[in-house]
């Protein structure tokens, strides 16, 4: 029997792909680690939940929306931290934030002891959890401190695929990453579109205009303007390979947060009296590539 494909190549490709976006945080962490090496720390049965949500009448999650797993990537010791975007919008509260900070701290300590340990952070986050407000702010500062300390030893890779995207405090965590991997479906932005519209008006930022929003903070734009290092399809295998390849590449010549001369030059070149499009910034960056 012969089979004549009637579907286009694109559709066939799509159907053979396994979506990363559709995976929950635990399965994402498992996916990014080498087969059979996933070992979860502070898993749901440890029941370290948010102490702040139930007293406000909000149902907690047993892992507080953050999965931490030790394992291997490309045969090397690694830790993967995956935020669950469906639980409280991937917001950072005390427990999930501390899990993240401590994972980075322990990875750094292993590196200091001569056990080279890599770190990946799979982000889906709307930012700080408002029900834990200032506790979240403190914990996020501690996450940053550990990220800056760890990235001296190993590339620290942030993966943002959507659907939630990466906003608020965690967008700065993406800024601190050595490398950022994004899909077209992902968004990376300090301020959420609705918040900007609320603060500055519709003329400044029309949150309901999805093509506009993606033209500012979508993965394709972030990749084209150098805020992401790799743009991948929503394919679990391709994303895993992208992470592995970035670790193989090793430390970059210059961290993105050290590019202050470049960014100051770029900012100086812009006419800030007018609003810009995503394309304006792509062009402006090309003119000031170095």
């Amino acid at each position: 029997m012969t089979f004549t494909p009637t579907l286009s190549k694109d559709v066939l490709e799509l159907s053979s792909r396994r979506s990363y976006i559709e995976l929950n945080a635990r399965d994402r962490a498992r996916q990014l680690l080498d087969d059979g090496t996933f070992h979860e720390l502070l898993g749901p049965f440890d029941r370290v939940e948010s102490p702040w949500l139930p007293i406000q009448g909000i149902v907690p999650q047993a892992d507080d929306g953050c999965v931490v797993a030790k394992g291997k990537i490309d045969g090397q010791p690694a830790v993967v931290i995956a935020m669950e975007g469906k639980f409280q919008g991937g917001s950072i509260g005390e427990v999930c934030g501390m899990k993240m900070a401590e994972a980075f701290r322990l990875a750094r300590q292993d590196n200091e002891k001569g056990i080279p340990t890599r770190a990946v952070l799979s982000l889906e986050s709307g930012g700080v959890r408002l029900q834990e407000a200032n506790m979240g702010e403190l914990v996020i500062a501690e996450i940053y401190a550990e990220m800056v300390a760890l990235r001296k030893y190993t590339p620290l890779i942030v993966v943002i695929t959507g659907p939630t995207g990466c906003f608020g405090g965690m967008s700065l965590a993406a800024g601190l990453a050595t490398y950022v991997v994004m899909t077209r479906q992902a968004r990376l932005s300090m301020n959420g579109p609705e918040v900007i519209e609320q603060e500055a008006g519709k003329a400044e930022f029309e949150a309901s205009n999805k093509p506009f929003v993606w033209s500012v903070n979508g993965g394709a734009q972030r990749y084209a303007t150098g805020f992401a290092d790799v743009l991948v399809e929503d394919d679990a295998v391709a994303i895993t390979a992208a992470v592995r390849d970035l670790f193989r590449k090793g430390q970059p010549a210059q961290l993105r947060t050290d590019q202050y001369e470049l960014f100051i030059k770029r900012l100086s070149s812009l006419d800030t009296s007018k609003q810009w499009t995503g394309e304006d910034i792509r062009n402006a960056w090309k003119e000031n590539a170095q």
Partner: peptide
Amino acid sequence: RRAHIGVVGSGDLEILMD
């Protein structure tokens, strides 16, 4: 036997069984 499934997301639930 011990098992865990699900997410505390909108219209969904998490179950822990021991």
